[in-house]
C-alpha cells in the first residue's frame, strides 16, 4: 500500500466524461493536499490496511468541505459527488487503472534472458539452483563480458564489441565483491516480487556480495517461473535473430564454464579479468548495449509482454 494516495488524482474523472482543466485540477489537488494533511494530523497518521486507508481517503479527504467545494465549482457530475457522500466512489477501479503499464522490449528481453539463465544454470548444476546472489551477479557480468570481447563486425568497431548490439542492458561497476550491477539486483527483486523466482536462504555464511553479507541466498525458478520459461525457451533457442542468438550463445558458454567452478574458483576467474583488475573501486566496468532492440527482432513480443504483465498483476 505505497503511495496509494495517487488514486485521488484520477478517481474523479474515472468512469466519467468529466475532465479537469489546468486551473480546476490545480485547485482540486491543492484542496486534497490540505485535507489530507489535516486528516493525517487529526488521526495521528494514516491507516495501515488497504480497506481502512480507502475509507480514510473517502471519509476524511474527498468528503472534506474544501474538496467538495472545488468539485462543485468545477462542475463535477452530481452523481460523482453523491458517490463520495455515500461512500460508493470506486477507488478500487482507479487503483487498477494505475497498475496498467507497458514494459519496454529491452526490459522484457532482460527479464526473459535472466529467467532462462537461471533455468539453464539450474539444469547444468548438481545443486539444481544458482548457489548465491554473488554467483548470479558474476554470471550476468560474464555473459556481457563475453559479448564485449566478440567482434561486432561494424565499421566503427565499438570498444564494447558485440555488447554494443546485444546483451543485458545492465551497467556494472566494481565493488569490494567484484563486478556488481544495481540493476541486476533490482531486476532479480522484480522477478522475486512477481513470484517467478524463489530465493531460499541456504547458509549463514555471507558471500561478501551486496545484500548477501550475513546470509547466503540461492536462486531458483518458482513453478510459475518454470512455466513462463518453458513457453519461450525453444523460441529463443531456435531464433532467426542474430542478436538474440548471439546473446543466448554467450550465455550458454558462460554457464557451462561457471557451473564447473566452486566459489573461490569463480572469484579468481572473475577477478583475473583485466578490466576488473585495473579498475578502481566504484569505477565502471561495462555498460549494456547502447542500441535498442527493434520490435521486429522478437516476433512473440506481445505474448511475452502479456505474460509479464500477468505475472506483475
Amino acid at each position: 500500500m505505497t503511495n496509494e494516495w495517487k488514486v485521488l488524482t484520477r478517481v474523479i474523472e474515472h468512469g466519467s466524461e468529466f475532465q479537469f482543466t489546468d486551473e480546476t485540477y490545480e485547485r482540486y489537488i491543492t484542496a486534497v493536499s490540505e485535507a489530507y494533511a489535516d486528516a493525517t494530523s487529526r488521526h495521528e497518521g494514516t491507516p495501515r490496511t488497504e480497506e481502512e486507508y480507502h475509507s480514510f481517503l473517502i471519509e476524511e479527504v474527498l468528503s472534506d468541505s474544501r474538496v467538495i467545494e472545488v468539485l462543485e465549482e468545477s462542475e463535477v457530475p452530481a452523481s460523482k459527488i453523491s458517490s463520495i457522500h455515500d461512500g460508493t466512489i470506486d477507488l478500487e477501479s482507479s487503483v487498477n487503472q494505475w497498475n496498467e503499464i507497458r514494459f519496454t522490449l529491452d526490459e522484457l528481453l532482460d527479464l526473459l534472458m535472466l529467467l532462462k539463465l537461471i533455468r539453464d544454470y539450474t539444469e547444468s548444476s548438481s545443486l539444481n539452483k544458482i548457489e548465491s546472489r554473488y554467483r548470479l551477479q558474476k554470471l550476468v557480468y560474464l555473459v556481457n563480458h563475453n559479448l564485449m570481447n566478440q567482434e561486432d563486425y561494424s565499421i566503427d568497431n565499438s570498444r564494447f564489441g558485440l555488447l554494443s548490439k546485444t546483451g543485458y542492458r545492465y551497467r556494472y561497476s566494481k565493488r569490494e565483491s567484484g563486478p556488481y550491477s544495481e540493476e541486476v539486483y533490482e531486476d532479480k527483486n522484480r522477478l522475486f516480487a512477481w513470484s517467478l523466482i524463489d530465493e531460499p536462504v541456504t547458509g549463514s555464511d555471507g558471500t561478501g556480495e551486496v545484500a548477501e553479507r550475513n546470509q547466503r541466498y540461492a536462486i531458483e525458478l518458482s513453478a510459475q517461473g518454470e512455466i513462463m520459461v518453458e513457453r519461450f525457451y525453444d523460441r529463443i533457442e531456435r531464433t532467426d535473430s542474430f542478436i538474440i542468438s548471439a546473446w543466448n550463445q554467450a550465455q550458454t558458454e558462460e554457464i557451462q564454464k561457471a557451473v564447473q567452478m566452486n566459489r573461490s574458483e569463480l572469484k579468481e576467474h572473475v577477478n583475473q579479468i583485466e578490466g576488473v583488475q585495473t579498475t578502481d573501486q566504484g569505477g565502471e566496468l561495462l555498460i549494456g548495449p547502447e542500441k535498442k532492440f527493434q520490435e521486429t527482432d522478437i516476433e512473440y513480443l506481445e505474448e511475452l509482454r502479456g505474460e509479464f504483465e500477468h505475472a506483475r498483476a
Binding site: N3, W5, Y25, E26, I29, V32
Partner: peptide, 13 residues
Amino acid sequence: DTLISCAKIHFSD
C-alpha cells in the same frame, strides 16, 4: 502549486 501539493501529501505520510 501542483508540485507543492504532491510534496505536501507525500510528507504527510
